[in-house]
Design a protein around this nucleic acid. Structure first.
Length: 354
DNA sequence: GATTCGTGGTA
DNA sequence: TTACCAAGAAT
């Protein structure tokens, strides 16, 4: 008769042995072999990667990470960049407050810390855009401090390892406690990356590969057969659908009328087309009087908490039009669709293929 | 504690 | 097609 007390306890050593053999090769990562030789990661690159990876997949981040580090190799370079250049380079990655806070943080580090990142959790968490997870991740990975990271991967691994059925986010403190108990004194940075790699490649949300998991023996959910149900989460609210108008206008030379969106709120600080509010019944009020023609197709886009359907209208921009407020005229050859957030780029793509 | 804040991949 | 999910932070 097997009971829970006869279950072996999970140990970090088992996981680290697995990590030494299976660690993913990531652009910002120092391999466990190199790390063992005394090679340290660049805190700037760890910070940048961690911010980009917030709620974002590794696959989506890779190209952005390469472009950012090529264009701005150090935190001082980034701190000296123009706001619009950074926002444009971030365009398409989403959660644009990250880009605004990234720049704020770079400038604080450059100006108040001599271009050197704080090497402790308490120092890091004071910085813009660095919360509990990212402060723990940077201090563990970049400085090998004994901090415990708690991201979606770790939550899932711990919920399964200990068969915890309390739904998130209520279960968070309990999961953090379990994760902390497993954090070793030696190689805490590799351990943090190992748990996250395990969650990303073995202990996945659907179809976890329990048969090849280094922690299969001590896993309580595997024993109970509940792995795929965990972690439990409180149900999400349904997404409403909002409507809106956007207005594409260019003059005879091919220059476009765009606007800088306000710093706060949705797509804050990003470039976009002039448009209406987004709600159930938006008013169709173009930025100037003209013969506005509606394009046949609509832009459909889904944000975190609502669906959006945009009707796109087109008109010729009068020669000599003076941009008002946040509007700006961008010369034909200065306009890069890649500077636009995806929903705005979809409207441009619609025009291009009209 | 609940809400806001993007996007692309996947089943 | 829809819903879920991803190395969360700020308010």
């Amino acid at each position: 008769m097997r009971d829970l007390d006869s279950q072996p306890k999970p140990h970090s050593d088992t996981l680290l042995e697995w990590y030494d053999q299976h660690a993913r090769d990531l652009p910002w990562r120092i391999s466990p072999a190199d790390r063992a030789q005394g090679v340290w990661p660049d805190p700037y690159r760890i910070w940048l990667s961690e911010v980009m990876l917030q709620q974002t997949t590794v696959a989506a981040v890779k190209d952005y990470f390469h472009r950012f580090t090529t264009r701005w190799p150090t935190v001082a370079d980034l701190a000296a960049a123009e706001d619009a250049d950074v926002m444009g380079e971030w365009a398409g990655l989403g959660y644009y407050a990250r880009a605004r806070n990234l720049l704020k943080c770079a400038r604080v580090v450059a100006q108040d810390h001599g271009g050197v990142f704080p090497d402790t959790y308490d120092g890091l968490i004071k910085l813009p855009g660095i919360g509990p997870y990212t402060a723990a991740a940077i201090s563990a990975i970049a400085f090998d401090r004994k901090e415990t990271v708690l991201d979606g991967n770790v939550e899932r691994v711990m919920a399964r390892l200990y068969d915890i059925h309390t739904p998130l986010p209520v279960a968070k403190p309990e999961l953090k406690e379990k994760a902390a108990d497993l954090t070793p004194t030696g190689r805490p940075g590799d351990h943090a990356q190992a748990v996250m790699d395990l969650g990303a490649t073995i202990c996945t949300p659907r179809n976890p590969a329990c048969g090849i998991c280094p922690w299969r023996t001590p896993c309580a959910a595997r024993l109970a057969g509940t792995a795929t149900e965990l972690p439990k989460k409180t149900p999400k609210k349904p997404k409403p659908t909002r409507l809106g108008f956007i207005y594409l206008a260019r003059n005879e030379a091919g220059d476009w009328l765009l606007e800088q969106r306000p710093d706060k709120g949705l797509l804050g600080g990003m470039l976009g087309w002039p448009g209406s509010d987004w709600n159930e019944d938006p008013a169709d009020r173009p930025p100037f009087d003209a013969d506005w023609q509606e394009l046949g197709a609509e832009v459909r886009h889904t944000f975190t908490h609502f669906h959006l359907i945009l009707r796109v209208k087109l008109a010729q921009l009068p020669t000599g039009y003076h941009p008002q407020g946040s509007e700006q005229i961008i010369a034909r050859h200065d306009f890069r669709p890649s500077d636009l957030p995806t929903v705005m780029r979809k409207a441009f793509d619609l025009w291009k293929g009209r």
